[in-house]
Design a protein around this nucleic acid. Sequence first.
DNA 1: CTGAAAGCGCTTACAG
DNA 2: CTGAAAGCGCTTACAG
Lengths: 333, 333
Amino acid sequence: MKRVTMQDVAKLAGVSKSTVSQYLNKRYDYMSEETKRRIENAISELGYQPNIVARSLKQKKTSTIGVIVANILHSFSTKVIRAIEDFCNDNDFHVIVCNADDDPVKEANYINMLRAKQVDGLIVFPTGGNLELYEMMIEQNFPLVFVDRIIDGLSVDTILLDNEKAAYLAVEHFVNCNHTRIGIITTSLSRKVTPRIERIEGYKKAMLHFGLPIVDEYIKGVDLDYIQNALNTMFSLKEPPTAILAGNDLVLMEILRYAKENSINIPNDLALIGVDDVPFAPIFTPALTTIAQPAFEMGEKAAQLLLDKIKNEHKEQARIHRFPPTLIVRETT
Amino acid sequence: MKRVTMQDVAKLAGVSKSTVSQYLNKRYDYMSEETKRRIENAISELGYQPNIVARSLKQKKTSTIGVIVANILHSFSTKVIRAIEDFCNDNDFHVIVCNADDDPVKEANYINMLRAKQVDGLIVFPTGGNLELYEMMIEQNFPLVFVDRIIDGLSVDTILLDNEKAAYLAVEHFVNCNHTRIGIITTSLSRKVTPRIERIEGYKKAMLHFGLPIVDEYIKGVDLDYIQNALNTMFSLKEPPTAILAGNDLVLMEILRYAKENSINIPNDLALIGVDDVPFAPIFTPALTTIAQPAFEMGEKAAQLLLDKIKNEHKEQARIHRFPPTLIVRETT
DNA sequence: CTGAAAGCGCTTACAG
DNA sequence: CTGAAAGCGCTTACAG
């Protein structure tokens, strides 16, 4: 499989490789029609394809960005990725996606690998476990955008849902449905992951706003594996909650599983709202009431910001970009 | 953001860049401890990271493979991708994933782009619309593995479900549940996509095997957008089917939607089996009976085969690798 | 309008 | 045990 190079094309066309290069880069300012035609023919005859690796080395840019998601199992991650890919395709950028699996060690490996591969910039859903690495990138002025999670003390453009608003919308809707014993369950709070913290915070504020008591037993932040336990505890209370807000799609599925296995009727025994509008929400029985994130817009904005930085067209101070959630009322409330 | 190069390390360590390169590639056969230490210190002091692009250019390999899926919306695709990524990670290969969106034009662009980026090999779920390109890769002996779909007349290792068996398992189970009016619905047959063709073929063989008549009205292969229509037609028959096999996960969701909107009780009015074990199958009400593909094993095998080809360790004749489906009985039958 | 030359940051065969 | 040199396949400033 002998690869054909620019040199081969130049020889066949009877010109120098500089000229072939000019042709490829569409700098025909002064190129004769004759030359163009000869090069074109040589290229198609040889089936020549430029070697992007060589070009990247010389140009010191790869037109490739990296995306590292903390956990690809969230439907939110996959939607954001799709939006980023679409935007990058439209702008002739390639994207390499990596899944850190909520593991800071994997995340660090991916960051190093992608930078070694000379990506022009990085969009990351940070695990939060690699402060020094994040700081190094910022210091080096390496194009970087965070999604979904705030890392305290770092000056990075960050794309976030208005999480407090999301929780507020859920509580408000529960209240409108005459619930007063409202709970919230989300995944582990030990690593201070922004959406979890903010959704609980928003939940508390909303409860106060509607004059409802904050009952600690109604608030859980535990690992996915312990959610069945947490639900058991919650439903053993003298006065269990009559409505629950699921902090994300994976928690929602755990709650649905618990309800199914314990014959808890939704919404009669328990009203339910999940953050993240999962694909099966409308066909589920009962159809799931959810809080949707504008994932597509968020992904697009992340890509937009990053490409602007790469092209040096983004001069503003790094800040947090908030996006509004939407309540989609179906049958679980 | 001045990048530090091997030259900088060499200077600081007081050696030549050849020696630094040897160090990096762990060829210490004859390297003095002293030299090693000096290089190590220089590297960490400067925060040096090798430029993989330069290495790739020189070595004429990138340790990167491309994966092009026909349609990433299928849960099967995402599972296979995960398996490929895991396998490649373990073998120090990187992977770039692209979604052709069932569009041969996009597929061609991705193939060309990935080859220009010098990937060492390609795993593709072929749309079937780029015969010349596939042929060119084979002719050039470019490492290539197909998944999910057979392209007639091409000699390529191909990873496939035993689709006829999958259909057989479903029909058999329906028969055991005393159904005789059994239908099958899948997405459009116009492009002769292997799993669709083979599943219908397997369905027909199974029907004959169990002495049941083959009723054309019970067999539909239409685009996703027309499935509601097809279902309407089917259920307007004097004798509509009492059991349906959904050809894939997306079709399954369309059928579930139809049933919900038309108050068709599953499984009482209609028994249902879907090919592909969707994540929400066990928590659905009723929990979904499915035919699972061993997606993880299939992805692993695809990656295994490809890496062997890349390393020139795969000398056998290209062939089709079949994997067995599994029936998972839940509540929809 | 086109070409010769230098250089991107590595690796590697070879010399010593 | 280590270094000088060539070369991977491009791009680009410059000369003519």
